[in-house]
């Protein structure tokens, strides 16, 4: 087993795609984390599955952008249903998330058995969206990822201070006259886009890991939102590249779990050893009232 593939243009392409996906996930995951919506990402990524399969069934096309539009629409619908269920019934967010996540995924799996009966199903390779398969990325796919990522970064840059105040103090943002609802919709849409990109490399089952883990890791290293977003993007990109590299190197592995493991490893290391907040430092001073982190 050599390292020749590092020079391979295909590998470089795939690594670039994965890095971008990881970076987008880390940046939007930061907002999801701070708004306590980490698990909404999980529900949305699972909810994307029926959209992918339906897009294939309705059009018969295996065009990636088209499948991802289907994924985005159904992820959005999932998020909307979570909000509807929690606002209009006694069901609390945890159960509403679990409901949407498992039912949408179930519908997706049921539709997948329909899709598999189509003669073109094998080439469509819909199964790769379950656990991700970065290796099948094409040049035009990576180009699409790069365009979407650029759009997402631009919008976050433009609405930076609005998103910041929305995440910190929505009541104040509303009192200030900011259109909180519109901003919320925009941020959710960007998160849905990040998830749609993530599906290719990480898959519906584990995309949420790319949102949560890099952001949680970055939070341990800095107390500034600006730095946290950049760091989370960087750590996400690192997980993407590392995961793709490892899964290519080891072979016979879907990339999703490997990327998720890399991101989780980085998060674990940060939780333990980040300066000041690292848990390893608090263990050494038992009973000490040193507050590295806040309560609540």
């Amino acid at each position: 087993m050599g390292f020749g593939f590092l020079m391979d243009p295909t590998f470089r392409l795939v690594a670039t795609g994965s890095a971008l996906i990881g970076a987008v996930g880390g940046v939007l995951g930061t907002f999801a984390l701070l708004r306590r919506q980490s698990l909404l990402g999980d529900a949305m990524s699972h909810a994307a599955l029926p959209g992918i399969v339906l897009a294939f069934l309705l059009t018969g096309s295996r065009d990636l952008p088209l499948l991802l539009v289907g994924a985005s629409l159904s992820a959005w619908l999932g998020a909307l249903l979570v909000v509807l269920i929690t606002h209009r019934s006694r069901i609390r967010p945890d159960a509403a998330l679990g409901l949407v996540l498992s039912v949408f995924f179930g519908i997706g799996m049921a539709l997948l058995t329909v899709a598999q009966r189509r003669p073109t199903a094998a080439q469509a390779g819909l199964e790769r969206f379950l656990f991700g398969q970065a290796a099948v990325m094409l040049p035009q796919d990576v180009e699409g990822i790069a365009r979407t990522a650029a759009l997402i970064f631009l919008l976050i840059f433009l609405f930076w201070k609005e998103f910041k105040v929305l995440a910190f103090d929505p009541a104040f943002a509303a009192a200030m006259g900011l259109p909180v609802m519109a901003l919320d919709i925009l941020l959710t849409t960007l998160t849905v886009l990040a998830i749609a990109l993530g599906l290719q490399a990480v898959g519906v089952v584990l995309t949420s890991a790319v949102l949560v883990a890099p952001a949680a890791a970055a939070r341990q290293w800095t107390n500034r939102l600006e730095r946290m977003v950049i760091l989370a993007g960087g750590l996400g990109a690192l997980s993407g590249v590392l995961g793709t590299l490892l899964s290519t190197w080891i072979g016979r592995l879907p990339t999703g779990p490997v990327i998720a493991l890399c991101a989780s490893g980085i998060a674990l290391f940060s939780l333990l050893f980040a300066p000041r907040r690292g848990l390893a430092w608090t263990v050494k001073s038992p009973g000490g009232k040193r507050r590295a982190g806040p309560s609540g």
Binding site: F168, D169, A171, F172, M176, R219, N223, R224, M228, G293
Partner: peptide, 15 residues
């Protein structure tokens, strides 16, 4: 407007 102090997350990464 000064909301109640408890309305926000004081662990937010901001100075």
């Amino acid at each position: 407007y000064v909301p109640q102090r408890t309305a926000v997350d004081w662990d937010f990464p901001a100075t």
